[in-house]
Design a protein around this nucleic acid. Structure first.
Lengths: 140, 140
DNA sequence: GTCGACTGTTATAGACTATAACATAAATAG
DNA sequence: CTATTTATGTTATAGTCTATAACAGTCGAC
């Protein structure tokens, strides 16, 4: 019962991430939110008026997959989609959306604190820069 | 266009992991393998006779989801499923399975090396122990 | 003003996960 | 030994997330 992949950082990254994501999903679901929805609420709260496309680019969610997510959040009364451009939709949270975003943020904060506390102190400061180096995001 | 979650390790973990997984998937697909299949070939190669259930427990794949995966690998002639127990199926690779597992291993090795090289040297040694602390696996 | 690029949408397919129910076999308790 | 509990593999099903193609409408560059 030996796992020959345990020495590989990419494999451990995948296993650790799926475990952490599952734990977070089980915490955020009490607000009736999925992980992606909770993330979107945070980003739209911080960037009112952002377009669906721009939001999708930030989160690596394609336009085609963004549509039903945004429509669902709007249908729940959490978000408005205002034509800004003729073709673009500017997103902004409703009052109810802001309220739920704050509750979600509290859950995120607690989760992230719990996560950080599990990391041995001597490694803690290294995790973020190491992961950022693996994530070819805004900087490419 | 600001991402208020960028300071959270759990969020970065998720983003980095999905990006890395997508890259790996695109590399391993040239062998006609999915990520989970490549992993299974490695584990069965190292643990001949392991049961489907035990394999699933190692990989956090449920019995019900293991069945079609194992059946597919068997149908491709990569793996045998031999009744060991009356209820259990012992897994082992065919010759062709071993060959493909070796090719997959080469891709894994290259991928993991590439990944490691992206991490700034001063953080490199810290990633693995930090991730292992986040992954409540065999040790719980 | 035309052409190419961008936005949002619909439809569809694939991969992965989660749950329940079932038949069978093994292990345990008494 | 028998009866109950546990384990294994299977089927069926649903939900989530992702990926691609095609379309209509709009914007920008030239």
């Amino acid at each position: 019962m030996r796992d020959p992949l345990l020495k590989y950082p990419g494999y451990i990254l995948r296993r650790a991430s799926t475990a952490a994501m599952a734990e977070f999903a089980s915490r955020i679901v009490v607000l009736g939110l999925r992980t992606s929805e909770a993330t979107i609420l945070q980003i739209v709260a911080e960037n009112p008026g952002i377009s669906q496309s721009a939001l999708g680019r930030m989160l690596d969610i394609q336009r085609a997959n963004m549509t039903p997510i945004a429509a669902r959040l709007e249908a729940r009364g959490l978000m408005r989609r205002l034509p800004s451009d003729g073709r673009s939709l500017g997103l902004e949270l409703t009052d109810e959306g802001h309220l739920l975003a704050e509750k979600a943020r509290a859950i995120i904060d607690t989760f992230e604190t719990d996560l950080t506390n599990r990391i041995p102190a001597e490694h803690r400061a290294h995790l973020m820069p190491a992961l950022l180096a693996l994530w070819p995001s805004a900087d490419d």
